[in-house]
Design a protein around this nucleic acid. Structure first.
Length: 279
DNA sequence: AAGAAGTCCTGGGCGC
DNA sequence: TGCGCCCAGGACTTCT
């Protein structure tokens, strides 16, 4: 599942390869994956546009183009965006091929067809609902311990649900929410407002460290994820709880447990992540 | 208005 | 071996 570290890795792997190049055409095999504008306009507006730079906001990859346009890509769970030589046959699940001016092309594929593309005017990103309400970037200087403390205090929801809320913090998904909570030794079920100052401080550090380390490891390849060059990441070797049900906790040896929270799997150590009474 | 539930998707793993 | 069932889950929409 491409979360912030995976999208950041894709961004870094693509930017030196496509910046300055021009889109010479688009093959759109699955029009449905284009959320905005109409497929005909999407193709028409993209063709002939030069890539100015590649950016990221939360889990969105943003390809900034000449003409004040942005190609926004969201990979959801199984989406991939890979740079390949021209003429590479599209796979069974390739939905769009963006042809570049240097003999390469970007293949957008997604087994589950959940991923989405949009071509938006810069400065009018609110055309895509998910982008306008995005919360703070957890690796930016706007994300401070004070901010986290203040926000948690007025939220009654479970801390894990809050970490997954993209309008609160942008870019954390199921893997890194579980990993951050384990590192901070906080129960995923604990109400956000009930975290002690020490827990808030631990969570703040844990969120940043978990994401930074995952970027350094070029992302977590749990099932499908690959970067813009088709390379897997290595951060799956560093996971402490996600996908490790029944295996011993790295901290205490107790078996990792899996529970259902907010409709999704939640991995945690029942020993290290006990909800202790507030002293 | 916050929070929960439903929806979209398909490959893979499972039971029989 | 093969069929059917259910699960994985991000984000948007709808309901309470």
């Amino acid at each position: 599942m491409p979360e912030l570290p995976e999208v950041e890795t894709i961004k870094r792997s693509l930017e030196s390869r496509i910046t300055g190049l021009t889109f010479s055409g688009v093959d759109l095999f699955t029009p449905k994956v284009v959320r905005f504008p109409e497929p005909r306009d999407f193709i028409g507006s993209l063709t002939g546009k030069k890539v100015k730079r590649v950016g990221r906001r939360g889990k969105y990859l943003l390809i900034h183009l000449a003409g004040n346009l942005i190609l926004a890509v969201h990979l959801r769970m199984t989406g991939k965006l890979v740079c390949l030589p021209s003429g590479t046959p599209p796979s069974k699940h390739t939905h769009a091929v963006f042809k570049l001016s240097n003999g390469f092309e970007l293949h957008f594929s997604d087994v589950r067809r959940f991923g989405r593309l949009a071509l938006l005017e810069a400065g009018r990103l609110e055309t895509w609902p998910g982008l306008k309400n995005l919360g703070v970037e957890p690796l930016s200087e706007d994300f401070t311990r004070g901010f986290l403390k203040k926000e948690l205090k007025r939220r009654r929801t479970k801390i894990k649900a809050l970490l997954l809320d993209q309008t609160f913090i942008a870019g954390i998904g199921n893997i890194y929410a579980d990993e951050a909570l384990h590192r901070a030794r906080i129960s995923p079920e604990k109400p956000a407002a009930s975290l002690t100052p020490r827990e808030v401080a631990r969570l703040y550090r844990a969120v940043r460290e978990v994401l930074e380390e995952a970027i350094a490891n070029r992302g977590t390849t749990f099932r499908d994820y690959v970067d813009g060059m088709g390379e897997s990441g290595t951060n799956q070797e560093s996971l402490k709880v996600y996908g490790r049900e029944g295996k011993p906790c790295s901290g205490c040896g107790y078996p990792i447990r899996r529970a259902r929270l907010g409709g999704r799997s939640t991995y945690f150590c029942p020993e290290c992540q006990k909800s202790r009474p507030i002293l």
